[in-house]
């Protein structure tokens, strides 16, 4: 491996200084499950790792008084899906984090790493998008917030400026009687990268959908928010027709490529199937 120096930051300010002074070749080290492999395979030129796991707020998980949730960017995934309140109130987040890698990966991997790594197939990102997640960012210019939906700018690229890093991801409280679900298709039972993944969040007034968000992964250069699918169900009752319309809108939005994991045709088909699945499962949860 090439990375030459390791620095352990004990505060947000210290990490910002280390990253700013380190310039292009300094990288945040959270769980290391992406970045250590990238350094070893020399896919990224790295001279300094800034370990953010020893900054207390980076590994916290807080349920707020209003029902919102704040997850420290470096909190390992097992603590997220292992939190009974997250499972009960943010099941889409629990579902997506429960299947990232195997147990040994989940002991280290983080939401901040999954997001910053900006893989088009990253499993937690569609869940974070439909939950209206907002990344809280610290940097030389102070703190700012970036909606998860606007965070990725291309495969492996994101909107962070030099010296900036994610400190936490905040989720507003899900509405009473809302439902949410996340799902992916992989040819194995576990330990694989998504051919397609999909998530939805739906809120209702009686039977009528008042709020809807959809997101897809592995079907474009970045994880995608799908407003057209939301438009197909908002203000309507969910019937076979409206569900099919949302699935069709999602298929139209997806611009997948063919690669070793799947073809354009298979991916488009899966987008429709998974969109229907997540709607039906979100409705079940909303009614439960």
């Amino acid at each position: 491996m090439q990375a030459v120096k390791y620095a352990r930051a004990s505060s947000v300010d210290e990490a910002v200084t280390l990253l700013r002074d380190g310039g292009d070749t300094a990288r945040v080290l959270a769980g290391g499950t992406d970045v250590i492999v990238q350094a070893r395979e020399r896919r990224r030129h790295i001279e300094l790792f800034v370990d953010i796991k020893h900054i207390p707020e980076l590994t916290s998980l807080t349920h707020e008084g209003d029902g919102g949730l704040t997850v420290g960017a470096a909190t390992p995934l097992y603590r997220i899906y292992g939190d009974t309140e997250v499972v009960r109130r943010f099941p889409a987040l629990a579902e997506s984090t429960h299947v990232i890698g195997g147990k040994a990966v989940q002991g280290r991997a983080s939401l901040g790493g999954n997001l910053a790594n900006a893989s088009p197939a990253a499993d937690s990102i569609p869940a974070m998008i439909v939950l209206a997640g907002v990344a809280r960012v610290a940097g030389p210019g102070g703190a700012r917030e970036v909606p998860v939906a606007e965070f990725c700018s291309g495969p492996g690229r994101n909107v962070l400026q030099p010296g900036e890093f994610i400190t936490s991801i905040h989720f507003p409280p899900p509405a009473a009687g809302s439902g949410q679900a996340w799902e992916r298709f992989i040819p194995r039972n576990e330990m694989d990268i998504a051919v397609v993944n999909a998530a939805t969040y739906l809120a209702f007034d009686g039977d009528v959908v008042t709020e809807a968000r959809f997101a897809l992964g592995a079907v474009a250069a970045t994880p995608l928010s799908v407003p057209a699918a939301a438009a197909a169900v908002i203000g309507r009752r969910l019937t076979d027709e409206t569900i099919a319309a949302a699935a069709e809108a999602a298929r139209q939005t997806a611009t997948p490529i063919s690669d070793m994991r799947g073809t354009v045709r298979q991916r488009k088909h899966l987008v429709g199937v998974l969109t229907e699945h997540v709607i039906r499962r979100a409705v079940e949860r909303a009614r439960a």
Partner: peptide, 15 residues
Amino acid sequence: LDGRLVNSCLVLAAE
């Protein structure tokens, strides 16, 4: 590592 299962190939010794 501190009571959690990890892949030691994905941990830096310095950590």
